[in-house]
Design a protein around this nucleic acid. Structure first.
Lengths: 338, 338
DNA sequence: CTGTTAGCGCTTTCAC
DNA sequence: GTGAAAGCGCTAACAG
């Protein structure tokens, strides 16, 4: 194992002290009035020796690691891996690395992952919180750990969040269906007690009531742990209720439902119109293509990282922020009466 | 900011020395003959105080961080995010955290990411190497940095790899098409000078030659930076050559080609049969469903992590391993003559 | 059995 | 302008 090169090695080569090397390599030469030629020499030697600082020592000394943690439900879900990609890109821009973990929608696991990350010295956390983790999030925020909730959030706790205007999005898809002539519109959603599900439901109900279709409101719920069975059950219920359109409230729900509907050979949109959230290959390759609400994921993820880094780098700047982005309806074949 | 609890705090509370606390909390109590009641007390106090070790200090002292780096082309690509998920799960099992980065198929960026990770003190790297990074990989291996190449690899360098038996996989899909009556089978692949592309090509040619169809071998190449245009061009060429079947050599190529074919309203498989690699929503929701070679990704990722950790934890055990897994053909509608 | 001590590599006063 | 020295929190060798 080639010995790692240390500040000491550079100092010896350059005939200066270790502290000078540290100062120069941290771009504090000017401030400390180091002579330019000395600084230059140190930089040259460092480059020659291929110096790379020891992050552990730096972290220990500085009390920060320039690493952020990202907790999502499941990194293999394209929605979250997209988030991860944008988080990574922005973090990199600011010189931060990213630790990721998947929570499997499990509150206890989320808590464990967060503690683990903290123990490993990450400087802050971006989390897509799952049901039941309200207390954890509140606790982290109270402990003054830089934290941003992304995509989902808990109202009433003192923690920053960034998400879609879900109520509006729920309203918009419903409106879209109504305008296309659908009347018996059903919603399939998680039973989650989590704000984004509640808000999408609320938007749906707003639109239905506004159109005088309140009596047609029909909500079927599915359970995370048993997606397949519960989606089958939900679809049966929806069909029995003679719905002419379904709103599939999340990407995962949609993928499961689409498989089932495809097997059942139900004609879309003639027999049943469909709308979803978030996009993805499934929506693009289903026949007909699925209408959906697109989230400005890149902007949201970027903002999340930027706010987090602000919090990290300025500990006086940890006031709660609540940021909502507007979704955009992508109209396609699955929701248009011929 | 609630002050973090240190070994010192526990030591004071429990009326023992810091080192005893360290010994006990690192499960070395038995070995050092610490009295059980003392050990118990220390553990109790640690729990009460909610002690979490400072990872930076531990890393600095121990020279290892229990963190591994994962470099893939693009974490938002479902193929890679699946790998990430399995890597994460196995790493977690062994108490390791995961840093991830996307290389964008860029060798210079890969090098930068790897150096960055090393500087940050990761203990080892799992990398899906991109074209042009042979020297980098060889260099890392020579520097004795624990390293496993996953999915792709460079032959002739002294570095472990885990991948599919790509030649066999290329052979199998081709055979499958031939057996289903297709004769003018074309291959769309990266122009990459990377082994897995070459091997899939070789397998394709093996099967074609074996069946006396050598004169029908037709390969169109696409370029990573400009997938859309180059896929359009490739498909035009393939159609002009009057192919009756296409092998799409990677997931990304397939998704791009499927969109194009879908726009062109070419009837699959009557006019053109299709086979792909790796699966995904696109293959499941395309009509008809796409036949593909499934890689045992979970097993491969798990093995990659395990070998990496072995290398990390036993520096005498760094001999090169070359492990290949067999793919499995998933036959579906896109490759069966009615 | 338990405590003292010496660093891991780095940054940062504080003298000179 | 530059260097010596202390110390971040932890582990492990060595005394006692």
């Amino acid at each position: 194992m080639r010995k790692r090169v240390l500040l000491k090695d550079i100092a010896e080569q350059a005939n200066v002290s270790i502290s000078l090397v540290s100062i120069v390599l941290n771009d504090k030469a000017r401030k400390n009035g180091v002579r330019p030629e000395v600084a230059e020499k140190i930089r040259r030697v460092a480059k020659e020796l291929n110096y790379a600082p020891n992050a552990a020592a730096k972290s220990l000394r500085e009390g920060r690691s320039r690493t952020i943690g990202l907790i999502v439900s499941d990194i293999s879900n394209p929605f979250f891996s997209n988030i991860a990609r944008h988080v990574e890109r922005t973090a990199e821009k600011y010189g931060y690395a990213v630790h990721f973990s998947s929570s499997d929608e499990n509150a206890a696991k989320t808590a464990m992952l967060a503690e683990n990350m903290i123990s490993r010295g990450i400087d802050g956390i971006i989390v897509v919180p799952c049901e039941g983790s309200r207390d954890l999030i509140a606790d982290l925020a109270e402990r003054n750990i830089p934290l941003v909730q992304l995509d989902r959030f808990f109202p009433g706790i003192n923690a920053t969040h960034i998400c879609l205007n879900n109520r509006k999005a729920g309203y918009d898809v419903t409106r879209h269906l109504i305008e296309n002539g659908y009347r018996k519109i059903s919603m399939i959603n998680y039973s989650f007690d989590i704000q984004h599900a509640l808000d999408r439901n609320a938007g749906y109900e707003d639109a239905m009531n506004e159109a005088g279709l309140g009596k047609n409101i029909f909500k079927a719920t599915v359970t995370h742990g048993k997606m397949e069975e519960s989606c089958i059950a939900a679809i049966s219920k929806v069909i029995k209720a003679q719905s002419d359109a379904i709103i599939m409230s999340t990407n995962t729900i949609a993928i499961n439902c689409l498989k089932i509907l495809s097997d059942k050979k139900i004609r879309i949109p003639e027999e049943l119109a469909l709308v979803g959230f978030d996009g993805g290959d499934a929506f693009d390759f289903f026949t007909p293509e699925i209408t959906y609400i697109m989230q400005p994921l890149e902007a949201m993820a970027q903002k999340a990282v930027e706010i987090l880094i602000e919090q990290i780098e300025d500990s006086t700047n940890r006031f709660k922020q609540e940021i909502e982005y507007e979704g955009k309806l992508i109209e396609r074949g699955s929701s248009k009466k011929s």
